[in-house]
């Protein structure tokens, strides 16, 4: 594919607005036929860690290829997808921007760009705990572990390929400090405050045409009240928790009521430099803690 980018990596740590962004894209595609069905998002680009797509591309039984060897091949798979797609694909990923064992950037192939979504780690911790039916403390552990990963089981075949997260700061640094691909940073909080302007910026970066009216309609159709309505009526396929709905409040700053002072301190101590860099105000200056 020539001209605009063949693949846009829609990259983020989990629970940072990735699904909301994909629903916006689905509504942009649906146009006046929207609101798009929240359970019909998969066909619109998929996720980079899809086991099925990896096997279809490599012919290998992914259960018999080590996690690191899979990373090595994933780069070659993406290279081929970028060279062969006939329309722009927005592919979701929660992987950090990692190097393969041989030292090549797994996502850094020609013809791709990245939209990096980031959210206040304190809100991510609360949201992740609800989503995964786990405790806030376990969620904080995932944010703080520099070797954290999803689907890294060795005793069962996880539904997706292993995804290295590298902790919240490590994840953000990996995508923001790489220089292989053009990348744009979008803060979840800014998207909530002014969705039209931020989505428009991301589309312009990707070289995807859309009029202000089309964008405004897609934002309206991807409003949280609409998403909650659809989820309560039909459920949502990407929901993991049996008790908590996927679309809760999408709230900014909800952590103030949900985290203990000790939990806040644990997150801020681990991530102060990256939080400052991304404009997330610390609740207390370090010398007062």
């Amino acid at each position: 594919m020539t001209g605009s980018a063949a693949i846009i990596w829609l990259a983020s740590f989990p629970k940072s607005g990735n699904t909301w962004f994909r629903i916006f894209l689905a509504n942009l595609a649906a146009g006046e036929n929207g609101p798009a069905d929240i359970n019909d998002l998969d066909e619109r680009g998929g996720i980079a860690s899809s086991r099925h797509e990896f096997e279809a591309a490599t012919q290998l039984d992914s259960g018999f290829v080590g996690h690191d060897d899979i990373d090595e091949l994933r780069r070659d798979v993406y290279h081929r997808i970028a060279a062969e797609v006939d329309h722009q694909r927005w592919i979701k990923t929660h992987d950090a921007y990692v190097m393969t064992p041989s030292g090549r950037p797994m996502f850094g192939v020609a013809g791709t760009r990245a939209v990096y979504l980031v959210r206040d780690p304190r809100d991510v911790a609360v949201s992740f705990a609800h989503h995964s039916s786990t405790t806030v403390d376990r969620a904080i552990e995932l944010l703080n572990r520099e070797d954290g990963a999803l689907c890294a089981s060795r005793t069962a075949l996880a539904p997706q390929l292993r995804q290295k997260l590298l902790g919240w700061s490590g994840h953000a640094a990996s995508w923001l400090d790489q220089s292989d691909l053009p990348a744009i940073l979008l803060r979840y909080e800014d998207m909530r405050a002014a969705p039209e302007a931020r989505f428009a910026a991301a589309l312009a970066f990707a070289g995807r045409d859309a009029t202000p009216d089309e964008i405004a309609r897609a934002v309206r159709h991807a409003d949280f009240s609409e998403l909650r309505r659809q989820e309560s009526e039909k459920g949502f396929a990407e929901r993991m928790s049996r008790t908590a709905p996927f679309f809760r409040s999408g709230q900014v700053g909800g952590w103030r009521a949900a985290l203990t002072a000790e939990q806040v301190a644990r997150i801020e101590e681990a991530h102060a430099p990256m939080m400052r860099r991304l404009g997330y105000e610390l609740s207390a200056p370090p010398h007062e803690r």
Partner: peptide, 16 residues
């Protein structure tokens, strides 16, 4: 494919 070639009746698969 990224790790396989096909030519005529031959198929070559490379498992890392």
């Amino acid at each position: 494919g990224p790790n396989w070639d096909m030519f005529g009746e031959d198929f070559l698969l490379r498992a890392p």
